[in-house]
Design a protein around this nucleic acid. Structure first.
Lengths: 154, 154
DNA sequence: CAATAACCGAGTAATATAGTTGGTTATTGA
DNA sequence: TCAATAACCAACTATATTACTCGGTTATTG
């Protein structure tokens, strides 16, 4: 398991989505503007998360993305895994034929650590992450500005 | 905090170093051969870890690297941080002037998660990681092959 | 039918990763 | 003293990943 800026972008975007849902689907355009992430990059990230079943999109005016599960049933690990595909870079790359035992250092140990890290991130839900830094307050403030109901998207 | 393959290389190398110390300093050449990591890349990684005070090197024949602290007093976080420099990619990049509160999603939340991750990795020592997958056995096997005392480095 | 917004794919620039090359300096033992 | 070892160092290179741009299509709405 890796944890790169790509995963960070995805988690950030998902939090923005979480904060602004309940007003119907959230557009990538608004997330792009709020978070300063390019629209196309968001599209790529969201395509992966959609394929992983985390979200679903609806087209046309009033469309956008919604979470498929409750914020407390989507973990950070879900998001990171969806977006940051594993890309096996072990020496022996899947094959268990590391000859002399020594080559296996990378194979065995890192995957062990990786599992632990996964478990850790799987234990943090989107909901928990949202709540734990007084962001709900900010949410209230930004609501009326943030989710204009189709009228003033200019 | 990021967690990339670079950190993985560093941790793997440090475990190799841990397993083979006690016979004196361990050369990068031997780590390179054991783990299949290029010598020069190891040099770059070890330069950073040396600057972080995790290890120290001695030159000349019989030289190599040793850990500066006990394996149980060096954490995975120490290694990752030494090697995978932070590289602030928050929107507001350090400046706290994110104007409207919304921009701060990336700023506040990820650093919070990052802190938690750091705490997690700081709680795992090199020693623990070494011990927890039956690697001490492998160590015994590889010892006589692995750390020839200066004679047969061919 | 025009506007919206997801969806899609091919490209591109910038950066990070991993390695190469070609050194120097310090230490050792013959 | 000298040759071998091995850390230390800097510049350069190839590849991969990141993040973005561009130019579309499809579905939905009013």
């Amino acid at each position: 398991m890796r944890l790169t800026t790509k995963g960070r972008y995805a988690v950030t975007a998902m939090i923005d989505l979480s904060l602004n849902q309940g007003h119907g689907p959230v557009t990538l355009r608004s997330i792009s503007q709020n978070q300063g992430i390019s629209l196309s990059y968001l599209e790529q990230l969201f395509a992966k998360m959609r394929k992983s079943g985390l979200i679903s999109g609806t087209r046309g005016p009033g469309g956008g993305y919604i979470l498929n599960r409750d914020v407390d049933r989507i973990s950070i690990a879900d998001i990171v895994v969806a977006v940051d595909e594993p890309l096996d870079i072990t020496e022996c790359a899947g094959r268990e034929d590391c000859q002399d035992g020594r080559r296996c250092l990378s194979h065995g140990l890192w995957s062990e650590l990786s599992d632990q890290l996964y478990g850790f991130l799987a234990g943090i839900s989107l909901g928990e992450l949202m709540r734990q830094s007084g962001l709900t307050r900010i949410r209230e403030e930004s609501r009326q500005v943030e989710v204009p109901s189709l009228a003033d998207t200019a």
